[in-house]
Design a protein around this nucleic acid. Structure first.
Lengths: 155, 155
DNA sequence: CGTTAATATCTCGACGATCGAGATTATCGA
DNA sequence: TCGATAATCTCGATCGTCGAGATATTAACG
């Protein structure tokens, strides 16, 4: 087996890790720009993702999304509510539940920051043919599958 | 311009984000398995990266790598030293400096966990031709460039 | 129904990670 | 030699997270 090919694959793996670092830094930058911490940003993203999917997150489900216990979720939502990024909305169906709604300003800030990145990524991909992108997509799915076996299940 | 193509590019961008989440989870898992926090893991990885490059990190440069102030670096190295993952080694050239050396056990644990992922990623890439991997590589470099413009410089 | 169990969130006290300011020790430059 | 600069450490304060327990609401079941 070619050593060159193996080295090339290792380089690609390193490149992927580098991309990972930079992608995390995008969230970090959003946090700094808006006086938030990493958890706050992850929470806002989770709420935005749910909103884009048409569902409003409850406090509990947000906790699952960002892996926090209920006490921390209460503190988290307190922080986000205090700066006006989210509203608590009691669910009339089940009055124990607390729904979370993003404010327009938070929605706009998120769209500006992360939507801008998505737009630029999409634009950069215009240089690729449909077949090339299909290959990239298959590769991404393959790598994600491998990574998930390490991030969740057995070694 | 085709709406299908634009949608396909957006899907790939989402796939990339998903991969990023799982890659973060790999570090998270390593942290849980070894009773560490995220910062500790990032520090160990930074020290391992430097070691693989042949240089020993000083406390100060580690702080730059993981973005911590000196007070926090002291506490961080205290933690890692207490569990036997690193040693402080005063630099004889400049006795103000504190070099950081990974213990064999920490090195082994890191190689096991992250090296195992690298190995599996490399193996999964054996299904791709040289030309295909060259394309993937170019794509990764392009995307990283775009992302870096968002993680560092102007919006 | 009415009582008990289960669920969702919140409160409280404690702990750990991070920081700024300042102290300490070592090197460098004039 | 001596003052300026640099690298690390110490100390006290702040913030995010958690476990345990409290509160309020719904579900289950005789």
């Amino acid at each position: 087996m070619d050593r060159d090919a193996a080295a090339a694959r290792q380089e690609i793996a390193l490149l992927l890790r580098r991309l990972n670092v930079e992608l995390d830094a995008v969230g970090q930058r959003f946090a700094e720009l808006h006086g938030l911490n990493r958890t706050d940003v992850r929470a806002l993203v989770a709420i935005m993702d749910a909103a884009r999917r048409g569902e409003a997150l409850t406090a509990g489900r947000l906790g699952e999304a960002v892996d926090l216990r209920s006490a921390s979720v209460t503190a988290l939502v307190d922080r986000l509510e205090k700066v006006g990024h989210v509203r608590r909305v009691r669910d009339p169906e089940d009055r124990r539940r607390v729904g979370l709604e993003l404010s327009d300003s938070a929605m706009a800030a998120g769209a500006e920051h992360f939507g801008g990145l998505a737009r630029d990524l999409s634009a950069a991909m215009e240089d690729y043919t449909e077949e090339e992108l299909a290959l990239v997509r298959r590769w991404l799915e393959d790598m994600t599958g491998v990574i998930m076996r390490h991030s969740r299940g057995a070694p």
